[in-house]
Amino acid sequence: MAKLFDMSKKVLVVVASTRPGRLGPAVASWFVRATTGTAIDLGVEVDVADLAEVGLPFLDEPEHPATGIYQHEHTRAWSRRVAAADALVFVTSEYNFAMPATLKNAFDYLSAEWAWKPCLFIGYGNTSAGTRGVQMARGVATSLRMLSIGGDIFLRIADDLSDGEVTETERLAARAKDALTELTRVADVLRPLYRADLEIVPAVSGDAPELLVLQRCCWVDEAIANETLDLPALVESEDEVRAALRTWTTWCVRSGGRLVGSVRAKRDGDTWNIGRLMVAPDQRHSGLGRRLLSFAESQAPAGVTEATLFTGARSERNQALYQKAGYSLFTEDAPAGAVGLRKPL
């Protein structure tokens, strides 16, 4: 058996301001330095995302973020980075009693990737030490279903920074360490809400009845989207599902003894064919589909150069999921009513 999800913890530190002469990178660097030992002790990996380097244009996605349908690679890259995080630290200044527009823009690009994760704010500024900007940002974070844990850190430029760098004191370092410790503890508690820690196991013949039920549940949406009931997943018998287990390597994911996800793959020359990626309807939007896909890719044997899969020509959500994972559409050799997607491995 293999763990489907990485149990290490990742904290994403987001530097909000992008203006010339900004202090955000220095504040973020101080936080990382001050918490290095604590992060090692807690098994935490800290990633700094400077929005000046991330380079998100003003929101340019035609679909609502809640759909998860992203047209642009800059959005997909931002999605992957936030989705990988277990907790967030937002380093933000205050402009005219508000957070920088760049932070609001970064928030607005995504939806599910933020949900149920704990967050902490580090504000900096002059008279208010950035408190009003943080207050505005906290409201947006809450609306995105993040949990603001409190214990935020506020730095007054006149008192806590000198020559563009944070004045390193034991008092500030202790606050940073305590903040990261608390953030990590809350992430451990919330983890089941945003990242199910499930095991993936090879399917056996006895799984055929449940696989049949699961694929029929999952392919109803496909039938509606593509206006056809003539889909193998809907018309196969239990014996046909069991026979497929002999020709495809198939994996299952269970939760509380219930089959909630599956994927299969087989080799064809230098191609790794992936199929029947399915997640129980009540488990969707949890990231399970993305992780099953990633797991299937990781099982490709030596010598394989690309992964391919097929989905309905009108299955926009599926196509968006695969394109976010790095797949490109193709139509040659695709079955009638379907499109193919491929990705170099």
Rank of each mutant, 00 (worst) to 15 (best):
V220G: 15
V15D: 00
W251G: 01
K10T: 14
L309D: 00
E222S: 15
Q71W: 05
T308D: 09
L329S: 10
N226W: 05
G337Q: 06
I153T: 05
R185Q: 00
E53L: 08
T184M: 00
E332Y: 13
A39T: 05
Q323F: 07
L277M: 07
T142C: 12
R267L: 13
Q319D: 04
G164D: 02
N226M: 08
D86C: 09
A280M: 09
I200W: 01
H64P: 14
T249W: 03
C119W: 04
S298D: 10
V235T: 14
D239N: 08
L103T: 07
G130I: 06
T38S: 09
L172G: 07
V44Q: 05
S237K: 02
R342Y: 07
L180T: 00
E45V: 05
L212W: 02
S255N: 10
G164A: 03
L293K: 04
R132N: 13
A320Y: 01
A158Q: 09
L42D: 04
C217I: 11
S128P: 14
E210L: 08
L161Y: 04
G287M: 00
T131P: 14
G133S: 13
R246G: 13
P57F: 00
T305I: 12
E113G: 09
D160E: 07
A112L: 09
I224R: 15
